[in-house]
Design a protein around this nucleic acid. Structure first.
Lengths: 197, 197
DNA sequence: GTCTATAGCCAGATAGAC
DNA sequence: GTCTATCTGGCTATAGAC
């Protein structure tokens, strides 16, 4: 019983996802240069040659993942507006999600792009869509409300949000789960930076 | 006029330092694998071949720098006991120094060792000397005094110090000076995590 | 002591068998 | 569609000229 065209396409998409998922795991930890195609194919359980039927090069594979990482981080941050509770509760919840979530792999990937010179030009260009300003603008309404109701610290809003994202980014970048000795600070401790004294 | 043995040795040491300094700059940003010997030799302004007269391999060069990084970070942290002022003032001052200083390159190097698998076994082993416990123990007296005089937040001291170093490490790792958009948070903002409300 | 040229190895990408 | 075998280029480390 032969498969129809749609089924074939679906199988092809699944395999593509399988490769992307394996590649994300390896790229995030090891970076573009530190990753050999053989590592990805092994992680995906297929041969090296086969990957080139789905992606024309290591760079293309990498760039595809960077696109997803940026989109995912923006979508994730937007979630805060659907959350219940006061501004401080929202911020606390968002922080817990970010630090917990396995979106960490995408976070590390974006860090690779930011700090490495050996990354394709296109990946660098894509990162413009994830500038600090983008995130600051998304969180601004929440911080404004929090300042108004007295929960959040006074002061320049952009500076506060920028501080928030910088600290969170730093923590994510340390890749703590696997790093001996370091342990993720409790969210309540972190929040003290932004709450009214 | 020929140089005597001591002068020759000194000239040799200078060249060695010149190579080490160049190597630190490149390794810290690009990691062991991302760095080609030609990059280091170019940064140092010498030929590739010459480096092998001073270091037997890329790995040896890397390990030498890791040793220095660990020693430097410990020495630096110890400084806090020589500082003037109250515990909170000492901690603030230490933080400013760490974030400011060009010891950042050493910081990044240690991060490379922690997170990369492609680093020589010996470098990994050396990092044991820079475990979180080592730093916690160094800062313990200062935090104890700060809690006693009411400047610092109450709570488990090890957790507070560990949080402190984790956040600082994260910020250093982001390599902010060169990273567009990110900016180092003001130290006073960071300190709010540890001061009494 | 320093440089240039090269040997040897390793990994990305391709070709061709099944 | 998938795998194995191979081509090709680039980088570490060495050899040899000056």
């Amino acid at each position: 019983m032969p498969l129809n065209e749609e089924q074939l396409q679906q199988k092809r998409d699944e395999r593509r996802e399988q490769i992307l998922s394996a590649a994300l795991k390896v790229f995030a930890r090891r970076g573009l240069i530190g990753t050999k195609m053989s590592m990805i194919s092994e992680e995906a359980g297929i041969s090296q040659g086969l990957m080139y039927r789905y992606f024309t090069s290591k760079d293309e594979l990498f760039i595809t993942l960077v696109e997803r990482a940026i989109q995912g981080s923006i979508e994730g941050t937007k979630q805060i507006h659907q959350m219940p509770g006061s501004p401080l509760e929202k911020l606390t919840r968002l922080t817990e999600i970010i630090l917990d979530e396995d979106g960490q792999l995408y976070f590390l990937l974006m860090h690779q792009v930011r700090t490495s010179d050996d990354v394709p030009e296109k990946a660098k260009a894509l990162l413009e869509y994830a500038s600090m300003d983008v995130y600051v603008d998304m969180l601004k309404p929440v911080f404004e409300e929090g300042q108004k109701n007295g929960e959040l610290a006074e002061g320049d809003i952009s500076e506060l949000i920028s501080c928030y994202f910088t600290v969170i980014s730093g923590l994510m970048t340390l890749n703590i789960p696997k790093t001996q000795g370091f342990q993720l600070p409790r969210v309540e401790l972190l929040m003290r930076m932004f709450t009214r004294l």
